[in-house]
Design a protein around this nucleic acid. Structure first.
Lengths: 340, 340
DNA sequence: CATCGTTGATACAACGTTGTAAAGACGGCC
DNA sequence: GGCCGTCTTTACAACGTTGTATCAACGATG
C-alpha cells in the first residue's frame, strides 16, 4: 500500500497536520521538525494521494481532451501538442474518444465534471449548440474548430472561411476553372464554413458553381475521399481541381486519381486541409492549409488556465489562430511522377 | 456545486446508503424505494464523484499510457484502442509522451504511482532493463513491444523476429536477391529482433549479407527513411528490395525512390512494418506487417485488470499477439503507377 | 505582574463515497 | 406466542487530505 501522511508523521514523531504543513510549504514550522519531516518524507518516498487532495481541495490536476479519434492524424498531432502545453502548467491530460457520434460526445461531456478534471478542451463534430448549454459540466470548456453559435463558450480555431477561400483562390490562380469540393456535411460547422469559403472564392473568380461539383462526406476518412473522387470522375465533365476539406479526404482522392490514370496536377489539381505530416511525403506531395496546431494547443490550455485561476468573469473568447497555405506538388506540378 | 448522494437521499426521503445501493445495483431494495430513488437520480442528474469513490475503493480510476509520440500513427492508433479497452473497465486513460528519450521515460515512470494511476502501459524506446527494476513504481506495469530482459514484468508484443522473417521471406519469394534493411538501432530491442529476423530470412534463402545493406535510423520517422533510402541508392550495387522497420521509414523510402525515378516494385520492392492506416493508400500501397493492435490493447488492459484485481499473484506473462503479412502493391507490382 | 501577540503544534471536522455491522420489519414455522 | 431466517434499511466508520479552531509556550509590552 502507498505511503500516507500518517506513516510519515509516525516516523517523524509529529502530527499528520505538521507533515501536511511541511509538504505544502507552510511557514511556521520549527527548523528541527521541518528537518525531521523532510527526512521522513525522503525515507518513505511519500507521494500525495491526488484523489484525496482533490476531494479536499476541489481541484484535480487533470484536464480532459475530447476528440473524435486519435487515429486521425490531425488529432494525434494535436493531442501531442496539448499534452506538451498542459505539462507546462503541471496538468496531466486525460483523453476521451467520441468516434464522432453525438451521443458519445454528449456522454463525454456529461461524465466530465469538477470532480474529475479542472477543465476540458473539446473538439466536437456532431454536437449541437444546445447540448452544450443543456448540460453545464461546471468546468471551463474550450471548443476547438466548431463554434457553438449561442453558447457563451471559449472558442479557438483558424478562420475556416478565409482558409478555404485562400486554398480555392490558389486553384484559381493556377488556372483551374472547374473546381470541385469534397466534404460537405449536414451538421459539421467547419464543413459549412469551408464550403462558404469555397463558394466565395469561386464567386471572386466569376466561376460557375454547378451543384454536381460539391460532394458530401460523412466521415473525413481516406475511404470517403476515394469514393467521392470516383463519383466526380464519373461526371460528364469532370473537374480540373478538387478542394478536399481535410488531408485524409485528399489522400483518398489522390489514390483514386492515380487508379484512374489521371496525372496530378496536370489533369487534376488537389488541395487538402490540416497539413498532416504524411501529406509532405505523399506522391505527389499535397498542397494544403496548414493550421498552426501548436498555437491552437497553447491558446486552448492557456484559456483554461485563466478560467481556473478564477478571473472567471472575463467574457467568452473567440480566438483565431494563424494558418498558412502550404504549396506543394499536387498543385504546382513539379512532382516526381512515379515512372511506369 | 455538484449533486451528491446526500442531495438525492434527501429528495427521495431515504438514507444516503440506500441511494448508494441503488446506484451500485444492490439487489435488496424495495421496489417502491428503488423507484423513488431512481426518480430523484434522474431529477437531479446525479453523477458519482469519482475521486471520492476511488478514495474509498482504493483505486484511482486511471491507467497511464506512456508512448513516445502520439503523432506517430502507430501510437495514435494504439492509443485509441487502449482508450476503448480501458473504458470497458471503467478506466480513464492518462497519456504521457516521452519523445523517445530515456530521461523522459524514466521521469514518467518515476512520477507514476499508486496515488495517481492503478497501472501503466508502457511502450519504451530507449529504456534500459535496470531502469525498470531500479524504480519500482508500485503499480502493475505492462510493457509493449520491448522486452525487459531480466525484469519480471508483463510483456505484450508480436513475435518480432518471426514477423521480420516473414516480411523478408516474402521479398525472397518474389525473387529479390539484394535485400536491404532500414532501421538498425543501437538500443532499441525491437530493432535488434527485426534485424535478427531479417538475417534469418536471408540465411534461409542462402543469400549474402553485405554490411552496406543494413542502414541505421535513430528516429523512425519519414525523414530518416528518405535519407536512408538515398544512402542505399548511392551504393555501387543498390538493393532490389528494402525491408523498413516501420511504415514511416517505408513512406520516406517510397518517396525517395520516386524522386530518383525508380519504379516500385519493378526496380525496388519495399516492405514496411506496423500497417499504418495511411499505408493502404500510398502510391503504391505498402506491403507491411500488420500487428493486431486491438489484441495488443485488449491484452495489455486485461493484464492490468487481473493484476489490480489480483490476490492471485500469477507469474509475469510474456504474451505474443497475432500479426499478418499484408501484401500490397509495393511488392506485387500491380500498382497504378502515376502517369507522367 | 497581567496582558498581548507571535510562533508552533495539534485535534477535529469535512470532502463524497462505500463496507460493515447492526437493527428493524416481515413472514413462516413449531 | 415465541423463534428463526430472509429481506430492507440505516448509522457509523473509514479512505487521505487540508481548513479551522484551539491550545501551549514564549517573549515583549504596558
Amino acid at each position: 500500500m502507498a505511503v500516507t501522511l500518517k506513516d510519515v508523521a509516525t516516523l517523524a514523531g509529529v502530527s499528520v497536520k505538521t507533515v501536511s504543513n511541511v509538504v505544502n510549504g507552510y511557514a511556521f514550522v520549527k527548523a528541527e521538525n521541518r528537518r525531521r519531516v523532510e527526512e521522513a518524507l525522503a525515507a518513505t518516498g511519500y507521494r500525495p494521494n491526488m484523489g484525496a487532495r482533490n476531494l479536499r481541495r476541489g481541484r484535480t490536476g487533470f484536464i480532459a481532451l475530447v476528440v473524435p479519434e486519435l487515429s486521425i492524424p490531425y488529432f494525434g498531432e494535436l493531442a501531442g501538442l496539448v499534452i506538451a502545453a498542459a505539462q507546462r502548467q503541471d496538468w496531466s491530460v486525460l483523453i476521451e474518444e467520441t468516434r464522432g457520434t453525438r451521443d458519445r460526445e454528449r456522454d463525454s461531456l456529461a461524465s466530465l465534471g469538477p470532480h474529475l478534471v479542472d477543465g476540458a478542451i473539446v473538439s466536437p463534430e456532431a454536437l449541437a449548440a444546445d447540448d452544450l448549454t443543456q448540460h453545464d459540466p461546471g468546468i471551463p470548456l474550450v471548443l476547438l474548430g466548431e463554434h457553438a453559435m449561442n453558447a457563451p463558450i471559449d472558442h479557438v480555431a483558424i478562420d475556416n472561411v478565409l482558409a478555404a477561400r485562400t486554398a480555392v483562390g490558389h486553384l484559381v490562380d493556377i488556372g483551374r476553372r472547374r473546381i470541385a469540393a469534397i466534404g460537405q456535411h449536414p451538421r459539421r460547422g467547419t464543413a459549412a464554413q469551408r464550403l462558404a469559403g469555397y463558394r466565395a472564392a469561386l464567386t471572386d473568380a466569376g466561376l460557375q458553381q454547378p451543384a454536381e461539383l460539391v460532394v458530401p462526406a460523412l466521415n473525413y476518412h481516406r475511404k470517403e475521399g476515394a469514393a467521392a473522387m470516383a463519383q466526380l470522375m464519373r461526371l460528364r465533365r469532370p473537374p480540373d481541381a478538387v478542394f478536399c476539406f481535410n488531408d485524409l479526404l485528399a489522400a483518398g482522392a489522390l489514390r483514386t486519381a492515380a487508379e484512374h490514370g489521371l496525372r496530378v496536377p496536370a489533369d487534376i489539381a488537389i488541395v487538402g486541409f490540416d497539413n498532416n505530416e504524411e501529406s509532405a511525403y505523399s506522391l505527389p506531395s499535397l498542397t494544403t492549409i496548414a493550421p498552426d496546431k501548436a498555437a491552437i494547443a497553447d491558446t486552448a490550455v492557456d484559456l483554461i488556465r485563466r478560467r481556473v485561476a478564477g478571473d472567471a468573469a472575463f467574457p467568452p473568447q473567440d480566438i483565431q489562430t494563424p494558418f498558412a497555405l502550404e504549396i506543394r506538388e499536387s498543385t504546382i506540378g513539379s512532382a516526381p511522377a512515379i515512372p511506369r
